[in-house]
Design a protein around this nucleic acid. Structure first.
Lengths: 342, 342
DNA sequence: GTGAAAGCGCTAACAC
DNA sequence: GTGTTAGCGCTTTCAC
């Protein structure tokens, strides 16, 4: 550091504690603690002297000591598969907004799509004694579940639904999404379909139920292309290419595991001069911001991610206040948005 | 919680401490501490008994107590303007990867683009006694700088460059980016230009230097459209619309503050049947994953965000080991990637 | 309204 | 190698 450590008051702030502040204000350390946690328990005069002392010393309370003494860290652990995937980020954002408004800070890690990797992170996070835990998805190792249950804190699993949640669960049924996509395709009159998916378990679950239902209703599934763990425009383009070149796809609807993939399909179709939606229809998933503004606008499955994050936060907050949330399992649902691409 | 709290060993794990584990293993609490922090300091036989006791009890070390005692939290505070903006997320990702490999966990918050909001978050984070601080950008309030300096921990400011960093600074000169974009435009033969920008200070700084340089070299700036704080495909489309309708833009290059904006411009141009790049040329910023796969492929400014995050992490780690990093100011540079859109 | 005492569960000396 | 003694800087409880 280039500058000597000085605070607004012009004093070194190396190790300022409540005791220091108290001494300066002519009160004990406990009173300083009270002043900060509940000003109404301290006389206005004292309060003012303490405030002055804080300003002079540049005192910053030590939340680590506070957490140890109170056994409440005001920290929420959150594990998301990917930091750069907008879908997870937007859920986190609304979750974290509400939590922060209530005085909680986020301990965030990227856990990928493998339960084994997640387990290690859960252990690491648990050692920080978070007050609650946010997990993406419902598939965890047995040990992970045990640790989480043993920690005896609110746990919320988002973005999926199960009959056996660890604690709270807010999401939707991916299987139902696949079914709805297939129903949509059939009802819109498409007799042929193909799929382009990322390789994560949820994407594949949606795809499989799409294929099952579409076939069951008499449609023809021409082919499925999937990529290991990465949705991208590049893979979307490659997906359509493979569907055409390797599976002989010539016309029909392409169901994608994400809007990013769908965008790639759209671009590749345009490049190949295939008419959308007449020759190639495209259905995405996620309804990301850009979906409505592509040309042609992308039909997709909307999941209200902000509502999901908010709902998860509300349930956790309820538990944190020792009340029970309205429901430990919230089906946030989804909606197919038909636009110009299909 | 639906299930009673039980660990793998089948015992309640309510309040298992090192003392509990020690008692079970027939050693003192300190020996357990040593076994966990440095197994070589403990005899193999003891080690094994301790390991057994840990398995039986399901002991999870309390990092809060550890942090208080050792004055090292193994926590890194990170503030990013937006969780959902891929540009910031991808820097964070590589930063966090390297930090986690070294045993550090992330305390992450979204701070928006206003220094005043950032200041509050800095105070909140500092109370958790992080071992280091990651900030996006170089503009902070005076009080924020004081607090950070007073905390006497490594601080890294990323995504910009200044002569007066708080501590470490890894980024590039946004002004130079604007200049380079203007030089590129002129040298590619464009005599007219327009800009479409988000409203944050860095985007505007790039834009202003673009306009200055482009004009200085004899180009004509037809108009500038900016949106308060939000880059999106929608705003990109609207940006081109306004440039044409309100500023009479008819042909030339459009310099955008992000690839997302540029994508919107591209789509709107396509919709209006304006030839790209012949009538409308587009230059983005960021070189996001999708940029190379748009049609036409997007020319843009590449900043190696992974290198940036990694470089920031390396510098912080060096400081954390009480060594000084090679340099406290790293110019990571940038590169204009010419593709089909200009 | 304020203070004294007793921890929270660890790590950091220092003995042996 | 292992144990003992002191804290780390707060919150909690109980007195006054």
């Amino acid at each position: 550091m280039n500058v000597p450590a000085r605070t607004s008051g012009g004093r070194p702030s190396g190790r300022v504690t409540m005791a220091t502040v108290g001494k300066l204000a002519g009160v004990s350390q406990v009173t300083v603690s009270r002043a900060l946690s509940d000003p109404s328990k301290v006389s206005p005069a004292t309060m003012q002297r303490i405030q002055q002392a804080i300003d002079i010393t540049g005192f910053v309370p030590n939340a680590v000591a506070g957490a140890l003494a109170s056994r409440r860290s005001k920290l929420i652990s959150a594990l998301v598969p990917s930091l750069t995937n907008n879908v997870y980020a937007s859920m986190m954002q609304s979750f974290s907004d509400l939590m922060r408004d209530n005085g909680y800070e986020l301990l965030l890690s990227e856990c990928g799509f493998l339960p084994e990797a997640e387990e290690k992170l859960i252990a690491a996070h648990l050692s920080r004694r978070p007050d609650a835990f946010y997990l993406t998805g419902i598939h965890h190792t047995a040990r992970a579940r045990q640790m989480l249950i043993g920690a005896d804190i609110p746990v919320v699993e988002v973005w999926d639904l199960t009959d056996a949640p660890i604690d709270i669960c807010v999401g939707f049924h991916h299987r139902e999404v696949g079914w709805a996509m297939a129903d949509f395709a059939k009802e819109a009159g498409y007799s042929h379909a193909g799929t382009v998916s990322a390789g994560d378990e949820r994407a594949l679950r949606r795809r499989d139920s799409f294929v099952d239902r579409f076939s069951a209703r008499g449609g023809t599934c021409v082919g499925n292309v999937s990529f290991s763990y990465s949705a991208s425009v590049a893979n979307g383009r490659l997906g359509l290419t493979r569907l055409i070149d390797e599976h002989g796809f010539s016309s029909g609807l392409i169901a994608c595991s994400s809007d990013l993939m769908a965008q790639g399909v759209l671009i590749e179709a345009q490049k190949r001069n295939l008419a959308v939606p007449d020759q190639i229809a495209v259905l995405g998933f996620g309804d990301q911001d850009f979906a409505a503004f592509l040309e042609p606008a992308l039909s997709t499955v909307r999941v209200d991610r902000r509502a999901l994050g908010t709902s998860a936060a509300q349930a956790v907050l309820k538990r944190l206040q020792h009340a029970s949330p309205e429901s430990a399992r919230v089906d946030i649902g989804f909606e197919i948005i038909r636009r110009a691409s299909s």
